[in-house]
Each structure stands twice: as C-alpha cells, then as structure tokens.
Amino acid sequence: MSGLTLATISHSFSARRVLDTVSLVIRPGELVALVGPSGCGKSTLAAIAGGILKPDQGRILRQYQRHGMVFQQSRLLPWASARDNIAYPLTLGKLSRAQITERTHAAAQAVALLPDDLDKLPAQLSGGMRARVAIARALVVEPEFLIFDEPFAALDPALRRRMQDLVLSLAKARGFGGLFITHDLHEAARLSHRIAVMDRQGKGILGSLTPPGTPGARSEAQIFDFTQEARNHPLLHDLLNVDERAVTLDCACDTLGFQRCC
C-alpha cells in the first residue's frame, strides 16, 4: 500500500489563501503528475504532502510508512560530500554506521553514481549528477511513496530525459507510488499514470487526464499524440496560456481564461 489522500486542504501565507479546499487521491502504486500554472500552489501542496508544512485545514491520509522527496534545485547540503548528502536522512534515525554505509552505497548504485563522485561536494558536481544525488537521497530511506517537486526544471532537455528514464526504471523496479509536480506536459505524460490539473488560484483540482498505456511502456508517438491532443483540452487552458506577468497576487483574473474569477 502506498497511496496518499489529501482531503479538502486549505493553506494561507500571510493572510493570502494559496490553497483552497484542494482534494487529491493517489491510489497505491499510482504515479500522479500535478500540473498547473506558476503560482497556483503546486509546490505548497507538495510541501504539505511531504510533511514540511501543516495545512490550515484539511486531512492527510498516508497509506505508507516512509516517503522520500526530491526538490527543485536538488537542495543538497553544500558542505557535505555526495555520500554524506545521500546518507543524511539515515543519520536522523538510529541505524548503525555499517547499515548507513551499506544503504548509501545501494542508493548511489541505483542512480548510477560512480564511487569517485561520492567524495565530491555538490559544487563539484554537474547539474545531472546533483539530480542523481538528490534522487539517491530520497531512495535511501527505502520509500514507498515519492514526492517530486519540479526536480528537473533546471536541467537541459537531454539531461531531463535521462533523469525521467531513471525515475521510470526506479518506479518499475521498486513499485512506489508518487506525486510528480511539473510544468511540463510532456514530462507529465511520460512519467505518470494520470495527470491532475490544478486550478490557477489553488481552488482545487480541476480534473484529470489519463495518457494511454502505462508509464515506461508508452511510445514516443503515443506521448506526442497525447500532448498534442491535450493542448486543446479546456482543462489545460490556463497551464498553456496564462501569462504570469498578468496575474496579480490577490486575483489572478484573466477574462479570456478557463476560470473566470472576477
């Protein structure tokens, strides 16, 4: 069992409501991509799912023991080597040094990090290597559920694709469920069982789209056809058309948009 239920989640920052009664159910073993325009509250929802933030209202039901989280820009400890970064979550528990070493090496191996890379500081690693270290850090806790918060947004397309392949192979091998936050419809279609679309003002999940087949088994042609077709779907209008410069903090009103808020 590795499902997650977020029920009627609301959250505010300094009296500004970022999430308003958002509900999302992720079934055991399901990898759900959450898409939505910038500033709609996707990362806030990920932080709530990951236990970083406590929501003002709502309930979280976790049908798993452990989760891992992979962040935007990796969030590696800059003073620690890749090895120590991967081991960090384990040092918070009561594992012996030998167990920590063993699991750290297993996680590093799973993401194809070389032993030479493990002694380097994050500043000495390339963007792709840093992403691998961040994924290994999430894997080291042997998670049943993984939360990805736009982890590959800063990578170039080729590298991003390699990282997506890595996630797909790991998800297939380990069978974990997860929540994958992204802006990229193609990435969402490649990685997920289902794409949930968030309202641009954080007022719930507007609906879901399901790409054909299962992640990892889809052909490039299937993904391309799906994304081309989805571009005309009204659910994705805001994702593809909202100009974030036109969105004010109080009321992201675009009268041409899918949601007419004013």
Binding site: G50, G51, F71, R75, L77, W79
Partner: peptide, 28 residues
C-alpha cells in the same frame, strides 16, 4: 531555510534541523 525544509521532509525534528543544518550555516 530550504535545506531545513528538505530535512523536515525526511522527518527531522526541530532540534535535528538546528543541529545538523542551521548551526553549520551560522558558524560558517
């Protein structure tokens, strides 16, 4: 503080976050 959020996602207590992340940054 984003590093402390990272630690929180792995279940680090407030004290563990201070000891392992904040203090290191402050001292440096």
């Amino acid at each position: 503080r984003r590093l402390e959020n990272m630690a929180a996602s792995f279940g680090a207590s407030r004290w563990a976050r201070f000891r392992t992340i904040a203090l290191r940054q402050i001292l440096s």
